[in-house]
Nucleic acid binder design. Structure first.
Lengths: 245, 245
DNA sequence: CCGGATCGTACAAGTATGTGAATTTTATCG
DNA sequence: CGATAAAATTCACATACTTGTACGATCCGG
């Protein structure tokens, strides 16, 4: 169950991140189609908690740097190593496509680091973006790191939906694709989940964390280059990952 | 009115910032005395929005870097100039006390930047921390920048409470203290709001923003040094603030 | 490897909470 | 400066949320 008011807080937060401008009560209420009164209550709550302030009455609400101060601390919970960001930065530079690091979260994969392509037509991914774990290359690169038992447990929770023409819609289809991935030594997907989108991914275990790296972009650019991309992918992983011992 | 679930989101956020550790549903529920089921709903909401993820079932929730990514963007809404942080850093170093920048928010003042003293006994202030505008030195340094009309409007909203022995509990008391501040050329307060706390502050207009700088610490250390501190305060403001023209 | 304890998840009833209309306050224009 | 419009704020009711309960899964100690 979605807790509406919890989601609303995040919506306001993201609204500020997007617009990068102060905002009045009326503006927010109109934008989200919220009643003025509810918007007022939300803004009051955020202000009392020290996350917003109103330098002068009716002239708009501003976010305080408290968001940043807290986020900085919260991001120490489980920081990624510095090299993983360098890795996707290089990957994006060499391939010209968007590169990302994904982590599992239930039946979903979450992007926990992203470097976007600079191409005008590109895969627009964001940190925190979630995609079905079984219907994406980055997701399947995560599944490869699961034990068969863990995969079984997960499959029972997945709601198989036909996102695109090639979406695997059964446990068998997924397992078959996983075996194929092992054979070719990388994961790939063509519009399995998002239209026109192709991806190439490999597992990237870090410590005891099961992550994956993915390069993704429009099918027409990635199309027949998945093998070449997988070579670059593996070469760069090899270069950046610290040698054990 | 406080929106409970909105506040809860921030509480969870701050919990991660404080503990810097992943957290299980049960742990959170116990800590905040929330029912498991409500906690479950909240965590689900935060996960679906991409702010939390659960790498493996029952092994705990982790914050995603999305908090940080959004906060970075949101902090571009109204960035402080670089010199204002340098100012309070120097201030804190020279005085040995906590220094901060405050902004008005209704009848409150909010700290929007803080450098804490390194002394073991010190004023523990945080970005986002709110204090009554009329009963603190930093707040009154803000009030000095208001027009008499604006102050009048504000006074009507203030609920005068006796926070400490010297809290000004009437409009007159506040106005008298403001005139005294003009005469001595800086604002000061001794436990007007927080017990044992003394502060020295001056206005710090930046652009069209009405801010203030404050040095605050325990009364026994600040006590009779307020004048000396005000000298340092004004000297450093003079040094850091870019010359007009 | 078994059994008890713990944890996560679903559900339905009662109530706190958010909403919409009414009121007050502030800004704007003639 | 007074009238008008728009915004913010208050208040009472209907809705959506919380919560206790129950079930199933998973963990852990013996």
């Amino acid at each position: 169950m979605i807790v509406r008011q919890a989601a609303n807080v995040l919506d306001i937060f993201e609204y500020f991140a997007r617009t990068k401008k102060p905002t009045t009560l009326a503006e927010l209420a109109d934008h989200f189609n919220w009643p003025r009164s509810s918007t007022f209550n939300l803004l009051t709550t955020l202000s009392e908690k020290g996350y917003l302030y109103e330098p002068r009455p009716r002239a708009g609400y501003y976010p305080t740097p408290r968001w940043l101060a807290m986020a900085r601390q919260a991001s120490e919970v489980e920081p990624l190593p510095a090299w993983s960001h360098a890795l996707i930065a290089d990957l994006s530079a060499e391939t010209g496509e968007t590169a990302a690091i994904a982590a599992p979260s239930g039946t979903m994969a979450v992007f926990i680091d992203v470097v976007e392509s600079s191409a005008p037509i590109r895969y627009f991914a964001q940190i925190g973006h979630r995609i079905p774990i079984h219907a994406t290359s980055s997701g399947r690169a995560l599944l490869l790191q699961y034990t068969p038992e863990e995969r079984d447990a997960l499959y029972r929770k997945i709601e198989f939906k036909q996102y695109g023409p090639s979406t695997p819609i059964s446990i068998n289809a997924v397992e078959t694709e996983l075996r194929a991935s092992i054979d070719r030594d990388y994961c790939e997907s063509f519009a399995d989940y998002s239209r026109d989108l192709a991806g190439v991914a490999v597992p990237l275990p870090i410590g005891d964390r099961r992550l994956s790296v993915v390069v993704a972009g429009p099918e027409f650019r990635i199309g027949d280059k998945t093998h070449d991309i997988s070579i670059v992918l593996k070469r760069l992983v090899e270069r950046h990952r610290p040698k054990p011992g």
